[in-house]
Simulated scan of single mutants.
Amino acid sequence: MNEIIDLPREKGGEKDRKFVEALARGLDLLRAFSQQGGVLGNQDLARITGLPKPTISRLTYTLTQLGYLTYSKHLEKYQLDVGVLALGYAYTSNLNVRKIAKPYMEKMATQANVSVGLTIRERLSMIYVENCRNEKTQALRMDVGSRLPLATSSSGRAFLAGLSDDERQQILSLMEQHSGDHWPAWQESISKAIDEYQEKGFCTSLGDWSKDVNAVAVPLKLLDGRVMAINCGGPKYLISDEMIMQSLGPQLVHVVRDIEATGV
Rank of each mutant, 00 (worst) to 15 (best):
Val264Ala: 04
Leu85Ser: 13
Arg257Asp: 06
Val253Arg: 10
Asp81Met: 14
Ser164His: 01
Ala86Glu: 08
Ala101Tyr: 05
Leu80Trp: 02
Glu3Asn: 15
Ser164Arg: 08
Arg17Met: 01
Ala24Cys: 10
Gly41Cys: 04
Ala24Gly: 03
Phe19Cys: 07
Lys99Arg: 09
Gly234Leu: 02
Ile194Asn: 00
Lys11Ala: 09
Gly234Ser: 08
Ala217Val: 00
Lys15Gly: 05
Glu3Gln: 15
Ile120Leu: 11
Asn134Gln: 15
Val213Glu: 02
Thr262Leu: 12
Thr55Lys: 14
Gly207Val: 07
Gly37Cys: 14
Ser247Cys: 01
Val216Phe: 00
Asp224Leu: 14
Arg17Gln: 11
Cys232Asp: 05
Leu252Asp: 00
Gly162Lys: 01
Gly13Cys: 04
Met142Val: 07
Leu118Pro: 00
Ile259Glu: 01
Ala185Met: 11
Gln246Glu: 13
Leu148Phe: 14
Thr62Tyr: 12
Val129Arg: 06
Val213Met: 05
Met142Lys: 06
Pro184Glu: 13
Gln36Lys: 15
Gly83Gln: 05
Thr262Gln: 15
Gln177Asn: 11
Gly162Leu: 10
Ala86Gly: 13
Glu122Trp: 13
Gly50Thr: 11
Ser210Asp: 08
Pro235Val: 02
Phe159Val: 03
Ala229Thr: 01
Asn231Pro: 01
Ile5Asp: 02
Ala32Gly: 02
Gly145Met: 14
Phe19Ser: 05
Glu260Pro: 15
Asn131Cys: 08
Gly26Pro: 07
Ala32Trp: 03
Val82Gly: 15
Met142Tyr: 04
Arg17Trp: 13
Gln65Trp: 04
Gln170Val: 14
Leu206Asp: 01
Gly12Lys: 07
Ala261Leu: 14
Arg147Ser: 13
Ser189His: 12
Met245Gly: 09
Val264Ile: 12
Arg226Ser: 15
Asp208Thr: 03
Thr110Gly: 12
Arg147Val: 08
Asp212His: 13
Glu196Ile: 02
Cys203Val: 01
Gly263Met: 08
Asp6Pro: 09
Ala217Arg: 00
Asp224Ile: 09
Arg9Ala: 09
Arg58Gln: 12
Leu118Tyr: 04
Glu176Asp: 07
Thr110Glu: 14
Val256Cys: 14
Thr262Tyr: 05
Ser34Trp: 06
Asp165Pro: 07
Gln169Gly: 12
Ser240Glu: 06
Asp258Gln: 10
Ser155Ala: 09
Thr204Asn: 08
Ser164Ala: 15
Glu199Tyr: 13
Lys18Met: 12
Thr137Glu: 11
Ala161Ile: 01
Lys73Phe: 12
Glu21Met: 14
Gly263Trp: 00
Gly37Pro: 08
Ala46Ile: 06
Arg31Asn: 01
Arg123Cys: 07
